[in-house]
């Protein structure tokens, strides 16, 4: 089983990101990490590989620095990694990103000498949260797609997945090749060990350029343009009640709430 996991390097999502003095997202100095949902996708792919057999390749589109995210993936299940250099591709929207990824899939298949059976993506990224790249990639590859899955197994030469819905879940079957996007499963991604980190460091990460992919310029231009950025209006804090005893706190709280005619 040949598996590709698409990864994006994003700013650590536990850090609150506002705008800097020039009105751009203040991400300077924020640790860059592999997108959380992509790490869930990699963990799910790794478990599938371990239960069956196969090889996991990871790919990211980004600057040279994004190799760090790929290295972290090589330490927890992936055995090959490619970086698609984003030089000249910095302002892509989801539609353009899915186009470049679809071209990268063919290129990597050529380099690996094998076709992918499954492509895993995170359900969404924690920075832009569009959740569109996975299904768009599937559409471009002309293969089946299941979004927001929390479990996967092989069945009858295809796959059977558990897909979260608003009301519960669906069991969905699809032939391979296919693209799946992964939501938070019941388990957490594994941590790398010293040994796996050392081994990962030795794996070369090949860089693929836009020129290597033979991209058409009009397809890498964003259809969705960002015309302005702002921070949401701040809300004023009201009163905080923290008296010495619980009884006093409660009494004061109820007094304030009665005064405000809340109840």
């Amino acid at each position: 089983m040949e598996i590709l996991v698409c990864v994006k390097q994003v700013p650590d999502d536990s850090v609150k990101i506002g705008l800097n003095a020039s009105g751009a997202p203040a991400i300077d100095g924020v640790t860059m990490v592999a997108n959380a949902f992509d790490t869930y996708a990699l963990e799910m792919a790794t478990r599938l590989k371990e239960a069956n057999e196969g090889t996991i390749t990871v790919v990211a589109i980004g600057p040279e620095k994004a190799k760090d995210a790929l290295k972290s993936c090589l330490a927890v299940g992936a055995s090959k990694a490619y970086l698609v250099s984003n030089e000249g591709l910095e302002n892509m929207d989801s539609l353009a990103t899915s186009y470049v990824l679809s071209k990268a899939v063919s290129k990597i298949e050529e380099l690996n000498g094998a076709k992918f059976d499954l492509v895993f993506c995170g359900k969404e990224t924690t920075d832009c949260t569009t959740g569109m790249v996975g299904p768009e990639l599937a559409e471009r590859l002309g293969v089946g797609c299941v979004t927001g899955i929390v479990d996967i197994s092989l069945k009858d030469g295809g796959i059977s997945v558990k897909q979260e819905t608003e009301e519960g879940y669906n069991t969905v079957e699809t032939a391979i090749p296919a693209v799946v996007t992964v939501n938070k499963p019941e388990y957490d991604p594994r941590y790398p060990t010293m040994k796996s980190k050392m081994a990962a460091r030795k794996i070369p990460i090949d860089v693929i350029t836009g020129a290597d992919l033979g991209l058409e310029a009009d397809k890498t231009a964003p259809a969705v343009k960002v015309t302005a950025l702002s921070e949401p209006p701040k809300k004023q804090a009201g009163v905080k009640i923290n008296e010495k005893t619980f009884e006093d706190t409660m009494a004061k709280a109820m007094e304030v709430l009665k005064e405000a005619k809340v109840f």
């Binding site: 609150k16 990101i17 997202p25 924690t126 949260t129 960002v226 950025l229 702002s230 949401p232």
Partner: peptide
């Protein structure tokens, strides 16, 4: 975007 701390037009 960014979990809602920035609004993109």
């Amino acid at each position: 975007v960014y979990g809602g701390t920035i609004l993109a037009e």
